[in-house]
Design a binder for these strands. Structure first.
Lengths: 114, 114
DNA sequence: TTAATATATGCCTTGACAGGAATATTCCTG
DNA sequence: CAGGAATATTCCTGTCAAGGCATATATTAA
């Protein structure tokens, strides 16, 4: 997982753009209009998003229609999954701990498992 | 999904810290040593991560052991899932398109579905 | 309390980045 | 080709954030 993706999404307006494009591909002007932003800033943000591989544009007449790209999102998904073992491991540890406590209670009430 | 989480992970060193803590909770000094960073910077980064709810510290003697928190990761997971309909919808559209093409070929070869 | 260890904070400087406004560029239409 | 529409780029400015370094704070131990 590279930091570029996170950086691209760390800017509020860029995040809004991504969430808007989640619905459907849109040309620059539409994005600017819907998000009440100025066209140049939208173009700049799209440049960053594009550089991060999050969006891609396709020309339609003079318009540039921007569309989300699945790849980075899949990468994020994969990255997130690498954390799952962490949580499960801790769950297991907790579970084992609870089992010990229970066993200790049964065996000699009032004592504590080391 | 709030932009704070993204911001916290958009800094390369912070991302490294998170990935390091994925293995196990660690005190500040250890983090600094393993990532070859200076202690003050590590503390600052941990402050940001902590503020974003990504980590939490627990005192052990003079040491502060930092540990990942699952919540934000679950939020990320949820957020990512909101994009799934987008991809499937496009898959469906593509599928439908292909079906049309195929039907058109069968019906009148050489024509094009509008 | 003092010394030592571990961490947090404060200040400073520098670089990156976002918005504003003007302008350049590209593409379509007549 | 001229004009217009849509988008990209440039320059400028202010703000924010990260690293370096010194120092404050907290906790333990003697």
């Amino acid at each position: 997982m590279n930091a570029t993706t996170w950086g691209a999404l760390s800017e509020p307006n860029r995040l809004r753009i991504v969430e808007l494009l989640r619905g459907q591909p849109l040309p620059v002007g539409e994005i600017a209009a819907r998000l009440l932003m100025r066209q140049p800033q939208v173009s700049k943000h799209l440049k960053v998003l594009s550089h991060a591989g999050l969006v891609q544009s396709r020309p339609v007449a003079q318009k540039h229609v921007y569309e989300l790209q699945p790849q980075p999102f899949e990468d994020l998904e994969l990255w997130l999954n690498t954390f799952r073992p962490t949580w499960s491991a801790r769950m297991d540890a907790l579970e084992a701990h609870l089992r010990n406590v229970k066993a200790a209670q049964k065996g000699k009430p009032g004592s504590k498992s080391r």
